[in-house]
Each structure stands twice: as C-alpha cells, then as structure tokens.
Amino acid sequence: MLNKNIYLILIISCVFGISFWIGFNVNLLPAEASINAPIYDELFKILFVIGLIIFIGMTLAVIYSLFKFKRRKDEIGDGIALEGNLSLEIIWTLIPSIIVLIIGIYSYNIYDRMGGMKELNHSHEMMSSNNEKIWAGISQSSNNDIANNNLSVEVSAMQFAFLFNYPKGEFISGELHVPVNNKVSMRMESKDVIHAFWVPEFRIKQDIIPGQPTILNFTPTKIGKYPIICAELCGPYHGGMRASIIVEDESDYKDWFNKNKKTEVDL
C-alpha cells in the first residue's frame, strides 16, 4: 500500500515537473513587442502549465488503464461492480471548480492590467469633437504614458486594405509608423464589412465593425517591423489584407513624419 502511494506521488510530481518545465521553456509565442505582450505571455504560461498537467494526467490515466486492465485472452467474467464513489465525485467537482475560479480571477487581473476595465479617455480631442458614440477595444494604460502627447491615428479599413490617416500632418499612409515607447491611440472605422486589426507581436486584436467607430490603444516597446493582419473574413482577398506597422525610435519617426506631412506642424 505504502509502495503504491509512493509511486503515485512520484508520478504526480513527474507530471507536474514536466508540465512546468515545458510551460516555462517551450515558447509558442511570437516576439513581445508591446507592453501588452508580457502580460499576455504571463497568462499564457500559467494556462499552458495547468492545461498540460490536466492533459498529461488524463492521457496517462487512460493509457495506463488500457494496459493494466486489459482483458487477457480466454479471460472471462466482468470487472468490479463499482457504480460510483460519492467522495471521489465530490472531489472532482470541487477541485476543477476551484481551479476554474482561480483562473477566472487571475484572468480578470490580467484583463485589468491590460486596461480592459478602464473607462474611455474622453478628454482626447479627436474623440470629443462630436457627440458620436464610440466603442472601446481592450487597451492598456502605461507608465510612460505622457499625458496629451498620445499619438493619434485614424485607421480606416476597407476591402482589402488598411489606410492610416495622420490628422496632425494631414496625410494618409499605407504603413503605420509609430515611435517606440509611446502610447498610440487609434480610431478605427470600417468602410464596408467587418474587418479586424491584429498585430500578433502586440497581442492585440479588435474587430473593426461598420457603424461602430472603435478606439484602440497600444504602446509598442520594441523597434521593428511587424505585420498588421485582418482577422475577420471580409471577402475573396481577405488573406491578402495585410499591412505593416513600423516601430522606430523617436527621431526616425520624426523624419518620416516630416517627410510626409502636408501641413506645417511641429511634433
């Protein structure tokens, strides 16, 4: 009996060990390039570990029973007449409930840190110009969020392209250029059908729904060029509906802006 328990404990700790190791060492995610990304990855790792423990545990249990309780040739008769076990059943109702509850609370916390619970910032000029109703995508608050120095861009999505309008410079670009470590505030609108704005490296996605202008904020943290992908089926060329976001340092961004701007403004 004691022997059996030791084996059980050994196996369980192996499952936990393996799951934790895989969870924290196998990276399934693309680069982290916004302040959202590390928060997301933290959640991902936790869920990955819990998922692995359950999956490996269940798979082992099934395979073990298949081998251990296999009917041998010319063996007759039935297995044990076990119809249930109330305490076991209560245990495997309670433990999953608790796990699920903890996951829920934790993901609420993550959600909050990503800015999901924050009220929209209505003080911004672009949004308060008329009394139009605006929807909010999940958007994070940031420490280096320099008040009123947010960069605002108007995104319009159409079959099958994104256009980025820089109202301060009065020009439109097919690429989204943003300075690193600055909060970017986008107002997104669709001209025809539903599209979605997705930057995998930023871990953000927001549907762009016609009739619902939507605000999406993000703060890039890593210089580079990343894809912007439309994630909502929008027609035959949906797969080709991509653009690029170029995160560059402040001075490169200024150069690019000044080269394109139509009106004289200072950044």
């Binding site: 829920g104 997705w198 953000i204």
Partner: peptide
C-alpha cells in the same frame, strides 16, 4: 477554457 479568458482570446480569436 483558455479561449474563454478574454485577455487570452483577444490574441487568438479568429
């Protein structure tokens, strides 16, 4: 269950 968590789903939805 992972997909049910909003912050997780935001990235992988669709």
């Amino acid at each position: 269950v992972a997909l049910a968590q909003v912050p997780f789903d935001i990235h992988v939805h669709d």
